[in-house]
Design a protein around this nucleic acid. Structure first.
Lengths: 209, 209
DNA sequence: AATAAAATACCGAGAATTAGGTATTTTCAT
DNA sequence: ATGAAAATACCTAATTCTCGGTATTTTATT
C-alpha cells in the first residue's frame, strides 16, 4: 500500500488525481493541502510514502516547500507535478533531490507508474522532461553558464521587474547605483536580451516572480 | 443524461475531471481535446450538451475557441474552468455568452452543480467569481474603464514587451515616434504602473503575449 | 594560500524613457 | 450627422537607461 499526500492549489486537480488514484488498489491518499504552508503544518503529523507536489503555487512554491521540509530534517519521496516543461526548473528539482517529475499533461498511466517507481526509492521523469533536459544539456556548458544568473543578479532582476529604478534598487540594497548599473549591464549581456523590457520578460518566462 | 466534451491542455486535468464525473450517473463524457484547434475539429462531428472549457490554453485560448465556434454558428452550452479569478476575464466571458464559470480550486460539488445547471439552460458562476466581479463593479465605472486598453494600445504593449524601442515601434507601425510616445504614456497612466517594466509585467500577467 | 567568481564602485557620452503639456484627424456608434 | 473615443502628432526638460570601459574588495572553493 502506497500512502500519498497531495499538495496542489487547485481543488479540482486534487479531486481529480484522488479520483484517478482511487481506482488503483495499492495507492491510498491520506491527505492533501492547498498550499505550501498548510502542507508544512499537516506533514508534521502525517507521514506519507510519497509526496505529490504541484510546482506552480502562490506564496510558497513547490521547490520552497521541498527546501523547508529539508531544513526540518524531513525527507520524503517526492514526485513533482509540473505545468510547463522548463529544463532550468528540472535541474533545480534534481539538485534538490526530488525523485520524480511528471508533466500535468501526462496521462494517468505515467502518473501511476511514477508514483510506484518513486515509492520504490527509484526515480521517474516524464520522457518529455528528460528530452528537453537533454536538449538543454546538449548546448555547450558555456552557453548554459551564460544564462545562469547569480543570486544578486536574480535579486536585481526581480526589483527591476517590480518597477524599481536603478536609484531605488541601490537604496534598497544599500549599494551604489553604479553597482546596480553594472549588474543590470551584466544581466542584459548574459541573457542576450536587448533592454530592460527583455529583462522583465525573462523574469516572467522563467517565473522568477 | 448530460453529454460532456472537455477541452483542457493538461491530460491530468481531463483524466481527473473524467474520473470525478464518472462517479455521477447522469453525466457522460463523450470526448475531449487538448487544445482549441483539436476541439474545433472534433466538435464538427460531436455534439455535446455541455462544453467544459479550460480558459488558459496556449495557441488558442478558451475565449478564442468560443468566438470561433460562434462564427461557425455553433452555439453550445459552455462552462468555463478558470485558474485565476480575474473580474476582467469574467466580464469577457459574460459578454461572449458563456453560461458558467467555475474556478479550478472549486470542489467537485460545485463542478457537478454547475454542469447540471448549465445543461438546464441556466447559468452558474462560482461564488468567488461573482464576488470578485461585484467588488470590481463596485469601483466606479470610470476606474474600470481606465484599465481597458484600446486595440492600438495592446499592439504597442506587445511590441514594447518584445524589446522594441519607441523608434522601432514607430517604424513598424508606420507612425510617428511622438505618437508611440503618447500611447506609451497613456498606457502607463491607464495601468497605474510606474514605468516600462510595469508595463511589460502587465503584458505577462494578463498574458497578452 | 591561491585562484576564480561574485559583488562592488566609478566615469562619460549617447540613447531612450518619463512627465508635463496641447492639438488635430479618424473612426465608430447613436 | 454629431459627439465621443481613439489615434495621430508635436514640443521641452528632466530622468533613466545603455554601452564603452576599468578596477577593487569579498566570498567561496580547491
Amino acid at each position: 500500500m502506497i500512502r500519498i499526500f497531495i499538495v496542489d492549489d487547485h481543488q479540482v486537480v486534487i479531486d481529480g488525481i484522488s479520483s484517478i488514484l482511487s481506482e488503483v488498489e495499492e495507492i491510498k491518499i491520506i491527505g492533501s493541502a492547498l498550499n505550501g504552508l498548510e502542507a508544512l503544518r499537516k506533514l508534521e503529523t502525517e507521514s506519507p510514502d510519497v509526496l505529490l507536489l504541484d510546482i506552480n503555487m502562490p506564496e510558497m512554491d513547490g521547490i520552497q516547500l521541498v527546501r523547508a521540509l529539508k531544513e526540518k530534517g524531513r525527507t520524503l519521496n517526492t514526485l513533482v507535478l509540473t505545468m510547463h516543461n522548463n529544463p532550468q526548473f528540472t535541474k533545480e528539482l534534481i539538485a534538490e533531490g526530488v525523485q520524480g517529475c511528471v508533466l500535468k499533461n501526462a496521462g494517468k498511466k505515467d502518473l501511476i507508474l511514477a508514483i510506484t517507481e518513486v515509492n520504490n526509492g527509484g526515480s521517474f521523469y516524464s520522457e518529455a522532461v528528460t528530452d528537453s533536459l537533454k536538449e538543454s544539456l546538449d548546448k555547450t556548458q558555456e552557453a548554459i553558464d551564460e544564462v545562469q544568473l547569480t543570486k544578486r543578479e536574480v535579486e536585481i532582476v526581480k526589483l527591476i521587474a517590480l518597477e524599481n529604478t536603478t536609484n531605488e534598487i541601490a537604496e534598497k540594497l544599500s549599494i551604489s547605483a553604479y553597482t546596480v548599473d553594472t549588474h543590470r549591464k551584466n544581466i542584459i549581456n548574459k541573457l542576450g536580451v536587448k533592454n530592460l523590457a527583455g529583462l522583465v520578460r525573462f523574469a516572467f518566462e522563467k517565473n522568477l516572480l
